[in-house]
Design a protein around this nucleic acid. Structure first.
Length: 341
DNA sequence: CGCTCTGTTCGC
DNA sequence: GCGAACAGAGC
């Protein structure tokens, strides 16, 4: 398993999926107005990755490079090390070698992200990743369940990380669930636009309830507010986001218990990460927001609630966002005689 | 300092 | 034209 895991890992190094921090940044708007944050860049990257990731995920089963291929490919140094190790292991483990690409992919996801820092620590929010900018790159569906299982093994100390993990796991839009067309969603997570990811998300949460409860999944403490909005408490200021680099470094060390290493490293890397910005995660789609009000509004998209009704007499249109309603009035009823204003 | 409101912007 | 998200202004 470990060997297989490494190879895939490399491949996905840049996928936002694994980068909770950015994942969050959901979607990204290719926007322009966020000069300061890294998110935009990450976002665009993320989107690209996301799409590519989806394709990749689909292809992964067939496209997963063999260990040898990986060795030849340029990769992060740490990964190379891992690969080298993995290769060595493979020599001794023929069975793994023969494993199908799909299996490898699966192994990769499950073990890397979840078991180890990837899943939990690494996913933290630098926000965004699992914010987003979150939204993230696509992670193949198959691994989720496995990864979850792995998660259960992680130490409770990972709590904060776990929280993010959830958010990062999928920023899958509720659309999927609702079968509504997704727009920009980004997902912060791997599944990115992949609707298939939604299942993962849920699977991740549900599949290992015990893990969540025992591990003190951050969201567990959250409370559902009105409109099904999940009210999460802001992350602790000292919340330790794990840097991917750190994780990689950790992973580079061959160890039976990967998560232990990650756990160890995570703390040290905290200082390097910016405080998480998106502390409020939509429980439905795992999308993270920096403001509770944003989360509330976002929740309308899931509930279908449209509290803002057009004031125009003949217009019964309703909107989930007040500004959209105003826009509507300005644009559609600008000339209307009934414009009170 | 944190939140809500509002306007702007992006993507469809 | 509309849904959705973000950032700034104001409280």
């Amino acid at each position: 398993m470990e060997v297989a895991t490494y190879a895939p890992y490399r491949q996905h190094t840049f996928q936002p999926d694994f980068n909770p921090h950015y994942n969050q940044y959901h979607e990204s708007r290719s926007q322009t107005s966020h000069p300061v944050s890294v998110h935009p860049a990450m976002t665009s990257q993320y989107q690209d990755v996301r799409r590519a990731g989806q394709r990749q995920a689909l292809q992964q089963s067939s496209a997963v490079p063999t260990s040898q291929d990986d060795a030849n490919k340029p990769s992060l140094p740490s990964i190379s090390n891992l690969l080298g190790i993995a290769d060595g292991d493979r020599a001794s483990l023929p069975s793994q070698e023969t494993s199908s690409p799909a299996q490898q992919a699966q192994a990769y996801y499950s073990s890397a992200p979840t078991e180890s820092a990837f899943g939990q620590g690494y996913v933290t929010v630098a926000e965004p990743m699992p914010s987003t900018r979150g939204p993230l790159p696509p992670s193949p569906p198959p691994m989720r369940s496995d990864s979850v299982v792995e998660t259960t093994h992680s130490p409770t100390s990972m709590v904060g990380q776990s929280y993010f993990l959830g958010s990062s796991l999928n920023n899958v839009e509720a659309h999927q669930q609702r079968s509504m067309p997704v727009k920009r969603h980004s997902v912060p997570m791997p599944g990115g636009g992949m609707y298939t990811t939604s299942p993962y998300t849920m699977a991740a949460y549900n599949s290992s309830p015990s893990a969540m409860s025992t591990s003190s999944y951050y969201s567990a403490d959250g409370v559902y507010g009105m409109n099904n909005v999940y009210q999460q408490r802001p992350l602790p200021s000292n919340f330790p986001p794990v840097m991917p680099g750190a994780v990689i470094a950790a992973s580079s060390v061959p160890a039976p218990n990967m998560w232990e290493h990650h756990h160890y490293i995570a703390p040290s890397s905290q200082t390097t990460y910016p405080q998480s910005q998106d502390r409020y995660v939509c429980q439905t789609c795992n999308k993270a927001f920096s403001r509770p009000s944003s989360l509330k509004i976002h929740n309308h998209s899931h509930t279908g609630e449209k509290p803002f009704k057009c004031t125009q007499p003949g217009c019964g249109k309703a909107f989930s966002v007040r500004s959209n309603m105003k826009r509507h009035e300005r644009g559609c009823h600008a000339g209307s005689s009934n414009m009170l204003a």
